[in-house]
């Protein structure tokens, strides 16, 4: 009896420190944290995407991004001159591109290339992994990280499976590997330049996406500015608003 009481007393004394060691977050919680880092509910950002090509040359696209809720996204391209006026919209499962030469919106797919670079449309416009993937924890080879093994819930996603490494301390992503339906790795990503882009909001400002099918090709996405508290009215995320 005395012994039981002693054990209970020790457990009670250690209770404040035990959860940190024992309560390992679930894959769902880690994924939710990752989503909060990479795709906060509402933000406006300025970004550039540089595609590095096989011949060593590069093409840079400058754009403005606006996100609302979990599944609404707008992109306005400012540079280069050849694509100025192009716009993209995601609303739920739907994506459109507005081409100023065509003067109208055309539907595009998640897996279509984003401006011919190594990101696809979903990499940029569909950053809510909790909705699209189920995950489980796997043994990690990178210190102080969780490794999430993600499987697509539906066939609408950009990838069939993803391996995602996130930091234990703050759930910032470190790297990712992206696989197609054949199980072949088609892209890999490295996240860097962790910065406080808005008050209290830190995320990697640079994403390097390597093309694993054509090794000489890779693209980088750099965020230069990001604001969380912005006005994002629902009308900005309608097909009719494209081109205005």
């Amino acid at each position: 009896m005395e012994r039981r009481f002693l054990v209970a007393a020790v457990v009670a004394a250690l209770a404040p420190v035990l959860p940190a060691a024992a309560a390992e977050p679930t894959p769902e919680q880690i994924l939710a944290k990752y989503d909060a880092v990479m795709g906060p509910r509402t933000f406006e950002a300025h970004s550039s995407m540089t595609a590095h090509r096989e011949d060593g040359s590069e093409r840079t696209y400058v754009m403005r991004l606006l996100k609302s809720e979990n599944d609404k996204f707008r992109v306005w391209f400012d540079e280069p001159a050849a694509v100025k006026g192009q716009e993209m919209l995601r609303s739920g499962e739907n994506m459109w591109v507005y081409l100023p030469n065509l003067k109208r919106a055309t539907r595009v797919a998640n897996r279509d290339s984003f401006q011919g670079g190594d990101f696809n449309n979903a990499d940029v416009l569909r950053v809510n992994y909790s909705a699209d993937y189920t995950g489980k924890l796997a043994p990690t080879d990178v210190p102080d990280t969780y490794l999430l093994d993600l499987k697509a819930k539906t066939t609408n996603t950009a990838y069939d499976s993803i391996k995602l490494w996130v930091k234990k301390a703050d759930f910032q992503p470190v790297k990712g590997q992206y696989f197609g339906s054949s199980g072949q790795m088609i892209r890999s990503a490295e996240f860097s330049d962790y910065r406080e882009l808005d008050k209290g909001y830190v995320r990697p400002a640079k994403v390097l996406m390597k093309n694993e099918l054509v090794k000489a090709r890779y693209s980088t996405m750099d965020l230069s500015e990001l604001k969380l508290a912005v006005d994002a009215p629902p009308q900005r995320f309608t097909q009719a608003d494209l081109g205005r």
């Binding site: 629902p234 995320f237 309608t238 009719a240």
Partner: peptide
């Protein structure tokens, strides 16, 4: 090229 017009458009999230 387009056409000369006066247009009124009412939009909601899923309707126009």
């Amino acid at each position: 090229a387009g056409a000369y017009m006066a247009r009124v458009e009412l939009t909601s999230e899923t309707l126009a």
